[in-house]
C-alpha cells in the first residue's frame, strides 16, 4: 500500500479524487435522483436558482430542470471520456509498441502515419468526422478516440525504443525469448505507469472535447450533455446566467479533478521525479 500512501501525500490529488467520486455517484444515481427525463419540461420556464425550492439550480427557457440536466450530463461526459480514452490507448499502445520494438521500416511507416494524425488540427477533424457520420454517442466517442491516440503512440514508441536497447531486454533476447513475449512480459510492464498517467489526463481532455462538440450542436440528440446546455444558454446569456454558469462549473470541476488525479498518479508512480522537483 506504499503507492496509496505516496498518492495521499498530495492533497490536490485527494481533493480531485473526492470530486470525481461525487460526480460519478451523481452520474450513476441520476435516474433515481431525477426520475423524469431531463428533456421534459417540469416547471415554469426561466426560474432563477432557489426561486422555487424544487429547482435549486433553476430551470431553462423550456422549464427543464438544470440540476437534472447536470446529473444526466455527467453520465455522458464520464462515459465518452472513459470509452474514447480506452479506444485511443489501445490504438496508441499497439502502434507505438510495434514501431518502437521493431524499428526500421515498420517504425518509419507507423510514425509517418502518427505524425500525420498529430499534425492535422484535432478539433477540426473531430468536427468533420462527427458531422459527416451524424452525431451519435458512437460517432462522438470514435471521433475523439481517432484524434487523441497519437500522443499515446509517440509516448509508447519512445519508451519501447529506449527500453528495447536496455540491457535487461537484450538479456531476454540472449536467453532466447521470442519478440512478442519480450514485448508483453519484459517491456510493457515497465511502460504501464506512464500510460496510466497519460490516459488519466486524456480522459480530462476528452471530456473537454465532448463538451465543445455538443456546444457546437454536435451532441447526441438523445442524451443531455453539459456542452449542449451551455450551447442552449448562449442566446439567454443576459436573461438567465444560471443556464450557462452551472454546466460550465460542472465541466471545470470534473476536468480539474481528473487533472489533479493524473498529477497525483504521476507523482506517486515516479517518486524519484518528485524528489527532484521539490
Amino acid at each position: 500500500m506504499k503507492f496509496f500512501q505516496r498518492y495521499a501525500k498530495n492533497y490536490g490529488a485527494l481533493i480531485g479524487l473526492g470530486i470525481l467520486i461525487v460526480v460519478a455517484i451523481v452520474a450513476l444515481a441520476a435516474p433515481l435522483l431525477f426520475p423524469v427525463s431531463p428533456w421534459q419540461s417540469v416547471g415554469d420556464p426561466l426560474l432563477a436558482p432557489s426561486e422555487d425550492p424544487a429547482f435549486p439550480l433553476g430551470t431553462d427557457m423550456l422549464g427543464r430542470d438544470i440540476a437534472a440536466g447536470l446529473a444526466y450530463g455527467a453520465r455522458v461526459s464520464l462515459l465518452i471520456g472513459l470509452i474514447s480514452t480506452a479506444v485511443a490507448v489501445v490504438i496508441g499502445v499497439s502502434i507505438g509498441a510495434l514501431a518502437g520494438y521493431y524499428g526500421g521500416r515498420i517504425d518509419d511507416v507507423l510514425m509517418r502515419f502518427t505524425e500525420f494524425f498529430q499534425t492535422i488540427p484535432a478539433f477540426a477533424m473531430a468536427i468533420v468526422l462527427v458531422a459527416i457520420f451524424n452525431p451519435s454517442i458512437t460517432s462522438i466517442t470514435l471521433a475523439i478516440a481517432i484524434v487523441s491516440w497519437p500522443p499515446v503512440a509517440r509516448l509508447v514508441r519512445g519508451e519501447f525504443l529506449s527500453l528495447r536497447s536496455r540491457e535487461f531486454v537484450q538479456a531476454a533476447v540472449v536467453i532466447g525469448q521470442s519478440g512478442p513475449r519480450i514485448m508483453f512480459t519484459q517491456i510493457l510492464p515497465n511502460v504501464i505507469s506512464p500510460i496510466i498517467v497519460t490516459a488519466s489526463l486524456m480522459v480530462a481532455t476528452a471530456i473537454l472535447t465532448e463538451s465543445s462538440l455538443s456546444f457546437l450542436g454536435l451532441g447526441d440528440r438523445n442524451m443531455m450533455s453539459w456542452g449542449f446546455m451551455i450551447g442552449a444558454a448562449r442566446t439567454m446569456l443576459r436573461e438567465a446566467w444560471w443556464m450557462s454558469v452551472f454546466p460550465g462549473v460542472a465541466i471545470l470541476l470534473t476536468v480539474l479533478a481528473i487533472n489533479l488525479i493524473g498529477e497525483g498518479l504521476n507523482d506517486a508512480m515516479n517518486p524519484h521525479l518528485r524528489g527532484r522537483k521539490d
Binding site: S212, I230, S244, G248, L252, V255, L256, L260
Partner: peptide, 18 residues
C-alpha cells in the same frame, strides 16, 4: 494555470461576455 487548463474555452468566452 491548473484552473484555466481545466476550463472549456467556449465557457470562458461566454463568461467573459457576461
Amino acid at each position: 494555470a491548473l484552473i484555466f487548463y481545466a476550463t472549456p474555452l467556449f465557457w470562458v468566452a461566454l463568461m467573459a461576455v457576461l
